[in-house]
Amino acid sequence: MPALLIELLNRGSFAAFGDVIMLEGARHYPINQGTTERYHALTSADTADQGGQTIISLFRGQPRALPMEITIMERHPLGSQAFIPVTQNAEDEYLVVVAPAGDFKVEHLRAFLGRGFQGVNYAKGVWHHPLIALHQVSDFVVMDRIGQGRNCDELFLQTDLWLTDDSLDRARKSAT
């Protein structure tokens, strides 16, 4: 079965699709008489098209088993969408599958391994697979758009591309 290469999630490799939300390398400074460290402007919401508003929700993702075929992609043409894991555990993992905004092309699919200390903010119009939690039920704070206009396009695929344990293991090994 053809496996989609899974890369480690980092700011550079993900920049074409949006922002990686993480503390490492972020601008920060002390506030509240030095009792709190503020990690400032990790990402921003792009939700104002057609009078949209930014909302915050919680998504609870059920763990998915690998191998898993890529059969659906979606995009939000009127707003960005951020997923921030609610965990302090770096071993909590999830997968991100994306393709550039515009006309979808299967050959442009990329997959990333996200860890519990990393979130993502998909740029407006970027194609992405619905939430792929691994190992356990996983909670994510989600910042996205509510308002008038059609803001979710779904595309059903017959790709014969799979996320596999072998590809996941290779991504993990590249971190060491």
Rank of each mutant, 00 (worst) to 15 (best):
L155A: 08
V96P: 00
N151K: 05
G61T: 10
G149S: 09
E74P: 03
R110D: 01
A171R: 07
D169N: 15
F14R: 02
G12W: 09
M1T: 07
D46P: 00
Q118N: 11
L155T: 11
I55A: 10
A65H: 08
D169T: 11
H108I: 02
L5C: 06
V97M: 05
A123P: 00
Q136A: 14
D169E: 15
D49A: 15
F117V: 07
A123Y: 02
L58C: 12
E154Q: 11
D144G: 07
R145G: 04
M22N: 00
A45F: 00
L58Y: 01
S13W: 00
N10M: 06
L155D: 10
G125H: 07
P67M: 01
L42M: 14
I146R: 14
V141D: 01
M73P: 00
M143L: 14
G18R: 03
G147V: 05
T36I: 06
R110H: 05
P85E: 11
L58D: 04
L58M: 14
I56F: 12
G61P: 04
L161F: 10
G52M: 09
L131Q: 06
W162N: 03
A16E: 13
G52P: 13
G25K: 12
D160S: 14
V106G: 03
S13E: 08
I146H: 09
L109E: 02
Q62F: 09
T71E: 13
M1P: 08
D139I: 14
Y94K: 03
G149E: 11
R27V: 08
D160I: 00
F112Y: 15
A41Q: 14
H135E: 14
E69W: 01
F140V: 04
S57V: 07
D19F: 00
A41C: 02
Q158I: 05
E154L: 13
H128A: 05
W127N: 05
L5P: 04
T36K: 13
A171G: 04
L8W: 01
A99N: 05
E24C: 01
L109I: 05
D92P: 00
N32E: 02
N32V: 05
H76N: 12
L131R: 07
D169L: 13
A3H: 11
I84G: 02
G52F: 10
S57G: 09
M143D: 00
G102R: 11
I55W: 09
L131K: 06
G34I: 09
G25Y: 05
S167F: 04
H135R: 13
F140M: 10
L78E: 02
A111T: 03
F156T: 11
R60V: 15
Y122H: 12
F83A: 07
S80C: 12
V96R: 04
D166I: 05
G51C: 07
P63G: 06
L42F: 13
V96L: 10
Y29N: 00
E91R: 12
V98M: 06
S80K: 02
T71A: 12
F59M: 11
